[in-house]
């Protein structure tokens, strides 16, 4: 592992030179004033990356449940609604969906007589949330299906209706099982939020792109960008493991 890291660094060092063939790490050298300004500029995108990811994930968790429930219905029509949503949304690549939402959706709104502008911030959040909700819905489905049928039947025989059965019996049991995969899905959102840069959202990737244009040091700047995502995802991973341990010890006997 250490050797691999060293080899990688050497490779970066050797090739990390501009067209002139000289080292280019000065652009993000924290010991120089201009390097420090550049680093601050790059890292300042972190707030927006986290913000759009968290909001998108929160919407996706609610939307996913709303999509998942009809999939459990005994009525064929409801199940079809669920399948169509999941298959359709799951099939659309994120980038085209982002363009469609950002450039297309306002036109649809306008044709309906609504004046709802979509800024890069909400365009990115809507796209990430909808795109992710298809996967979230499938996670809910597996979680709900993993709860034994007898639980639902027992709830029925003590007079609980569908909503009560879900709220008090099925979901509290399912949520323990689906929290780890849901949290995992959050990592996916964080990484996919990089696409928001193409509609002008000022997040990590956008900042890097803008700096590359002025400094013309893509290797160094994008290397730092990758490290930024790496740190972010590692922190989230640690959070997930903490959560899993907590859930495990919380399982009341």
């Amino acid at each position: 592992m250490k050797k691999l890291g060293l080899a990688l660094l050497v490779l970066l060092g050797l090739s990390g030179c501009g067209s002139s063939g000289t080292w280019g790490w000065y652009v993000i050298d924290p010991t120089t004033a201009s390097g420090w300004v550049n680093i601050k500029f790059l890292v300042s995108g972190m707030g927006n990356t986290i913000l759009i990811s968290v909001i998108a994930a929160a919407i996706s968790i609610v939307l996913g449940l709303i999509v998942a429930l009809p999939g459990q219905s005994t009525k064929r029509g409801w199940r079809i609604v669920n399948r169509v949503y999941v298959e359709l949304v799951r099939s659309i690549p994120l980038l085209p969906m982002l363009f469609w939402v950002f450039y297309g959706l306002p036109i649809i709104f306008k044709s309906m007589g609504l004046d709802i502008p979509i800024d890069p911030f909400w365009g990115a959040i809507i796209t990430l949330a909808v795109s992710d909700s298809a996967f979230t819905a499938e996670i809910y489905r597996s979680g709900i299906q993993s709860i034994a049928k007898g639980q639902k039947e027992a709830a029925q025989t003590i007079g609980l209706n569908y909503a009560q059965t879900m709220r008090y019996v099925i979901l509290p049991q399912a949520i323990r099982r689906i929290l780890p995969p849901l949290a995992n899905q959050f990592i996916y959102i964080v990484k996919m939020s990089a696409f928001a840069s193409v509609i002008g959202m000022q997040e990590l990737t956008r900042r890097a792109n803008e700096l590359v244009v002025t400094e013309y040091r893509p290797l160094e700047i994008y290397s730092l960008l990758i490290i930024e995502y790496l740190v972010l995802v590692l922190i989230i991973s640690a959070g997930i493991r903490w959560l899993e341990r907590r859930m495990g010890s919380d399982e009341r006997q």
Binding site: A148, G150, Q151, E153, A154, A155, I158, G159, L160, N161, Q164, Y168, V169, P172, Q173, R176, R252
Partner: peptide
């Protein structure tokens, strides 16, 4: 039921009061 089907995430008392509170 043959398999009891108690709600495993609720205490005995909570199993018993759920129906009376929510359904009745």
């Amino acid at each position: 039921f043959q398999q009891f089907n108690l709600f495993p995430h609720l205490s005995v008392l909570e199993n018993l009061i759920l129906g009376p509170m929510k359904a009745r």
